[in-house]
């Protein structure tokens, strides 16, 4: 068997202590093959973003086992390992520094990681996400939502990562712009051989982007399915099925039958 790109085993994450303790993620396990795109679906509070943040190294307080390309992740990560895992956040208005130009936003990670040829790389990164050189010296407020998200994707890719973590990358965008960004992400994954973990509440986006997915509820994985099983409606757990029905639009009969999970 080939070495999985991402291994997660028995991952648990909790916040707070004593009676205020919240178990946000409970014993979650999954593996992602190199070049695969894996989806985490669920409603708010299900723990999907918490897993992503732990994988990205943004939350060191977790227990269990996590590894990227076979290298075990600890509380402290070597810089080379950090470079391999990059993240794109949900809100393109909050995730770019408002007082930094696109040029500075893109060159800062290069400087931190000691890359040479900064200028060439910044130009190439903009070109790769379909933004011309005219965007290089603009500030985020001079860009539309879709353009900002392209800058965020360029920033994630500029360090030549192997894994890109996508946290609701298109939920703040209009559907027409969402289509452009999702197509861009599909192309980049193929061209650069990237591995994606995509978090979304939108089953349509996950069915389109991912080959396998985990459906989460209150910190637990209730079901793991392939994209084929999802699109053919072959989900087993009652909660997953309810989520699928709810995604299809307004239907009074279906809503009356909703259970409390």
């Amino acid at each position: 068997m080939t070495q999985p790109m991402i291994e997660i085993e028995d991952l648990s994450i909790s916040f707070g202590l004593g009676k205020d303790r919240v178990d946000a993620v409970k014993n979650v396990s999954f593996t992602v093959a190199p070049g695969e795109s894996y989806g985490l679906v669920g409603e708010s509070g299900s723990g999907k973003s918490t897993i992503l943040r732990a994988l990205a190294g943004l939350n060191p307080f977790w227990s269990g086992h996590m590894a990227i390309t076979g290298q075990k992740l600890g509380a402290k990560r070597p810089r080379a390992l950090r470079r391999l895992v990059q993240m794109v956040f949900q809100d393109p208005f909050g995730s770019l520094h408002p007082k930094h130009t696109v040029d500075r936003i893109l060159s800062e990670p290069l400087t931190i990681h000691g890359f040479d040829d900064v200028e060439t790389r910044v130009r190439a990164a903009l070109d790769r996400v379909g933004l011309g050189p005219v965007f290089r010296f603009r500030y985020p407020h001079q860009l539309s939502g879709g353009q900002r998200q392209r800058v965020a994707i360029a920033r994630a890719l500029i360090l030549e990562p192997k894994v890109v973590l996508l946290d609701e990358p298109t939920s703040a965008l209009d559907v027409s712009i969402q289509a452009e960004v999702l197509n861009l992400l599909t192309d980049l994954r193929q061209q650069l051989g990237l591995t994606y973990v995509l978090v979304s509440h939108d089953l349509g986006v996950v069915a389109h982007m991912c080959s396998r997915l985990s459906i989460m509820r209150t910190g637990e994985v209730v079901e793991t399915a392939s994209a084929d099983e999802l699109s053919e409606g072959r989900l087993l757990h009652a909660y997953s099925r309810q989520l699928l029905i709810a995604s299809r639009g307004y239907d009074t009969a279906a809503i009356a039958a909703f259970g409390d999970f």
Partner: peptide, 11 residues
């Protein structure tokens, strides 16, 4: 434009 659950397209 929106991706659909039961009608998957490559683009």
């Amino acid at each position: 434009c929106p991706p659909e659950i039961d009608h998957r397209r490559s683009r």
